[in-house]
Write a protein that binds this DNA or RNA. Sequence first.
DNA 1: TTTAATTTGTACGTATGTATT
DNA 2: CAATACATACGTACAAATTAA
Lengths: 242, 242
Amino acid sequence: MTERASASPYLTIKNDLLSQIRSGQLRPGDAVPHEETIAQQYGVARATVHRAMRELAEEGFVERKRRAGTRVAAVGGRTTKVDIALVRDEIERTGAPYRFKILTRNVLVEDDFAQRILRVSSKQPVLYLEILHYAGDQPYQLEERWINLDVVPSAETQPFDATNPNEWLIATMPYAEAEHKFSAQNATANQAKALALAEGDALFVIERRTALDAKMITYVRMLHPGQTYAMAATNFSLSTKN
Amino acid sequence: MTERASASPYLTIKNDLLSQIRSGQLRPGDAVPHEETIAQQYGVARATVHRAMRELAEEGFVERKRRAGTRVAAVGGRTTKVDIALVRDEIERTGAPYRFKILTRNVLVEDDFAQRILRVSSKQPVLYLEILHYAGDQPYQLEERWINLDVVPSAETQPFDATNPNEWLIATMPYAEAEHKFSAQNATANQAKALALAEGDALFVIERRTALDAKMITYVRMLHPGQTYAMAATNFSLSTKN
DNA sequence: TTTAATTTGTACGTATGTATT
DNA sequence: CAATACATACGTACAAATTAA
């Protein structure tokens, strides 16, 4: 009930192999026939088979080695993809109106934590912000953000009234590299108050460090009520489209 | 300071474009030259350029439409990859010896929650397990697992003494499809006791539903102390190897 | 509405490079 | 050192989608 309409030959081959792997006809460790062999079976060029196999390898289903050939991968852990959407999109997708409020805003100099996390020297100023994002009247996310003013000096005078800091930063430095971490924390008194929770309630925390050219741009903690928030991982699956 | 040793032409092109996007020479919405144009610039075949562009599109950096051409993607949210390793691997990687203990084991019939979560009818039995995974003497993960005995009847008589249920299931049904969810919860009294925490402490929870051919195989909750556990997301980045 | 032009998407067959046995 | 099987590349061809005339 899965594989239908396999338009292009390379997708047909890819899906056929995937079915065999899933159904257990091909078990982990088993050898997959050579590209040339498969090409002849299907009456296609080797390049076509190659593409199917390359994608299966990228998605972790098979392992390929020159001379040794292709084998079904030993399973082990799983890899999933996670989308970290813009808060605004996330909220608006639920139908609720989005708004945000800046709770705290100040420039830190000689602040130990800021210096360490943004890897700046003691003289360099860092902008610290606390922002609360609402879904309608419900607090949805509390954002704690540090911005390296050495790299983005214009942030210091930005009003952040129409556009929130995250979206402003993205517009300013679109393709910086990001690194994420997920964890769980008990809400501090302050955090609980902002999010309308009780102190100690579990928070789902996303941390992000953003850098460009080895220079840290910003570090942000996004805190969500653990009861209501859950992050779904889109599962690697059968190759439907392309 | 990133692109060096760009072996193959297609990687050279891919990295060059990526640098231009990151540096801001190409901004979101900007048009990228046609494959043919780039091919001539680099003196390569169009297929070579095509591969570079296709991968950039897969990774979300550009958007391509026939006839309309290729443009740098409007940024929006970010996508990261998350590895959910086997507990044993995760623990052994820290250097600590791994062991596990089955705390609870019973067969549920007519259990509302089990029926709903595994989508089974009221007559079908479900195996319920609570397993504690240790890193040395420290409890590392509390696992709550439901197994659909209709699909995997042999689980009922499995001793699970040498191999833990997760690894046994993977060996039995290697390439089932999985769906993950991450969240934060406060520890119940029982959970806290098992994990040597205080009641109410924040837990980082990974939930997984595994299915094969539209039949649910197992549902599992993996609970971790929020203080010590953190999940890192490997960031999509500059195309280094292949 | 139909038709043509453009640009990406896939495929073919061949050739050569490269890691591994 | 040779043989093997994957990895990349070339040039050409045609299909499919989309825009413009």
